[in-house]
Design a protein around this nucleic acid. Structure first.
Length: 574
RNA sequence: CGGCGAUUAGCGCAGUUUGGUAGCGCACUUGGUUUGGGUCCAAGGGGUCGCAGGUUCAAAUCCUGCAUCGCCGACCA
């Protein structure tokens, strides 16, 4: 590609609405432009990267035995009603009606469509197992799109679905996919980790996420320093402390706290250390047969955070978790949030494992502007249940029993699930088994955020000058930057010849033939992140040499023009 | 969805307090100059100041409503 016939579209200045570095650099490097909130046009350079990621994903999926197909973005509402997700999915599902007033959705995922396809086309156990996939545009009406293509409303996803007769068979394919995903992220040249994950609204039992590690990541991941254990923080179990609860030493005593509504204020005004007090959070309980929801108190240590996923999985707690409003709290307890505690509560009380080993602790007195000190379990609060309710924190013991947990941030770029029969059951997708009986299929599903990978790769690979692409996904392998070509007699021929032979050697070459000053060209190539730049200048031509510069290391290599193609290939493989 | 903020040329911004017919830098066009790291000089093109109402002799500027965008939170995965 010649820059004179290309649309480079680089920017000197950073558009003000771009928050994270990948978004800024994608705009500045001329990869994307915003059309509306969460909607982007991919410019030629951006599309080149997207396609390279896509192709690596495709190659590894094919290698794993999955078969590519393509389903429509537009999906009929009927299928979603059949699975129950028309109601359940919420406003994130973009819905519309056609001219005949029939209702449709823009696909945020394709479990319904693929299950519908397979139930119609597959009828015998002999056709199983079967793994189908597509690379396709997904639509999710995100409440708050942000970070450019990282969390967009329209994005490219590879989604795969597998169908089985048994859990064992599903598990085998799941392992194959896990491996295929590792191969993909290895080939992409990214620093990533597979982690245990929650299954969320997609449903199912076993699940792993694949995270690209980056400070800007929206997820927190917990790692053991002594084992392979890694889990999304929302999933990581906080083990019960090994130490025994100390014996009660103090009397229960109320004290006035008019200036303290929060743990911080309790510390500031009354010297109560956060780990010596507990937080009491009031949430709604599971509805009774009349649909009425009572209240449930959740207790965690003052310096810990409630893990909402863990809480809402408890049978007493309504899901999704909802914090009780102030009016309901006052009606039930007689005190406002800020002075709540477990002593004297009549509602069910769930106590986090760590809070349960506290003695002589502080909490609200369930009376405005008053707290208790010297609270002790079993003596002052007798009816309660112990559960894992909190987020793990740095330094907690690993749930695998080996090592200590450390927390890093990650960007979720892949997610695999063992779905079980959630969708096949709902859509009655069965096959005849060996004994001629109809049997519901067991499913797995496997997603990769292709467009998100592009942004995640930049988060991990950039410097003050711009993007530094991992070679396999760079928009171009090499840029040819001739010095003052338009004034030189010999440079145009040499540059053109090298351009032709490098292209013939199968490389993606960007030939900067603009009539620009060297600095402009160098800066643009560095911003775009092209891994190698071949500088052709009068200075070295007398020795028949050109200069090969490595974007990542900054290393400059003088190579002979006559063996340039070989030298460049060698450098790329180094 | 709640809180906060923004909206003036393709991009980044000033001008709004104190109303008087819109400006700077980058980018773009033309000519010259320069040429191994975003040259310099000159001349140009480009804006119903987010939209709609209102106040006023006069509105980018004051008032009301709306829209869009962003940040924080909640939500979602």
């Amino acid at each position: 590609m010649r820059t004179s016939q290309y649309i480079l579209a680089t920017l000197k200045e950073t558009p003000s609405d771009a928050e994270i570095v990948s978004h800024q650099l994608m705009l500045r490097a001329g990869m994307i432009r915003r059309v509306a909130s969460g909607l982007y046009t991919w410019l030629p350079s951006g599309l080149r990267v997207l396609r390279k990621v896509e192709n690596i994903v495709r190659e590894e999926m094919d290698k794993s035995g999955a078969i590519e197909m393509l389903m429509p973005v537009i999906q009929p509402a009927d299928l979603w009603e059949e699975s129950g997700r028309w109601e359940q999915f919420g406003p994130e599902l973009m819905r519309f009606t056609d001219r005949h007033n029939r209702t449709f959705a823009l696909g945020p995922t394709h479990e319904e469509v693929i299950t519908d396809f397979v139930r119609k086309e597959v009828s015998s156990y002999k056709q199983l197992p079967l793994t189908l996939y597509q690379v396709q545009t997904k639509v999710r009406d995100e409440r708050r799109p942000r970070f450019g293509v990282m969390r967009a409303r329209e994005f490219t996803m590879k989604d795969a679905y597998s169908f089985h007769l048994s859990e064992e068979c599903l598990d085998a394919t799941y392992q194959v996919m896990h491996k295929a995903y590792c191969n993909i992220f290895d080939r992409l040249g990214l620093d990533y980790r597979p982690v245990l994950a929650d299954t969320g609204s997609i449903g199912g039992s076993v699940s792993h996420e694949f995270h690209v590690l980056a400070e800007s990541g929206e997820d927190a991941i917990a790692f053991s320093d002594k084992s392979d254990y890694a889990a999304n923080i929302e999933k990581a179990e906080a083990l019960a402390p090994t130490e025994e609860r100390p014996a009660a030493a103090k009397e229960l005593k109320a004290f006035p706290t008019p200036d303290a509504k929060t743990i911080d204020e309790l510390k500031k005004h009354y010297g109560v250390k956060p780990h010596r007090g507990v937080k009491t959070l009031i949430v709604y309980g599971t509805p009774d047969e009349n649909g009425q929801r009572g209240l449930v108190a959740l207790i965690v240590r003052g310096d810990h955070e409630l893990n909402e996923l863990k809480a809402e999985k408890h049978p007493l707690v309504d899901s999704p978790l909802e914090m009780a409003n102030e009016a309901d709290i006052i009606a039930a307890i007689g005190a406002k949030p800020g002075s709540l505690g477990p002593v004297g509560l009549t509602m069910p009380i769930l106590v986090d494992r760590t809070a349960n080993v506290m003695a002589d602790f502080v909490a609200g007195a369930n009376k405005d502007d008053e707290h208790y000190s010297g609270i002790n379990w079993d003596r002052d609060v007798t009816e309660y249940e112990v559960a894992d309710l909190r987020n793990i924190v740095e330094g907690d013991p690993s749930p695998c029993g080996n090592g200590t947990l450390h927390i890093k941030r990650g960007i979720e770029v892949g997610h695999i699930f063992q779905l079980g029969t959630k969708y096949s059951e709902a859509l009655k997708a069965g096959v005849l088994n060996e004994s001629g009986k109809n049997q519901i299929m067991t499913m797995g599903c496997y997603g990769i955020g292709v467009s998100r990978i592009v942004a995640a790769a930049i988060e991990q690979n950039n410097d003050q000058y711009g993007i530094i692409w991992p070679q396999p996904i760079a928009p171009f392998d090499l840029a040819i930057v001739p010095m003052n070509m338009h004034k030189s007699h010999r440079i145009p021929d040499i540059a053109n010849n090298l351009y032709d032979s490098l292209k013939a050697a199968g490389l993606d070459v960007l030939f900067d033939d603009r009539k620009e000053r060297p600095g402009v060209m160098f800066n643009d190539m560095e911003l775009l992140g092209v891994p190698f730049t071949l500088v052709i200048g009068e200075r070295n031509l007398d020795e028949n040499m050109v200069e090969l510069k490595n974007r990542r290391t900054g290393e400059k290599l003088m190579i002979d023009i006559n063996t340039a193609v070989e030298a460049i290939k060698a450098a790329m493989n180094a």
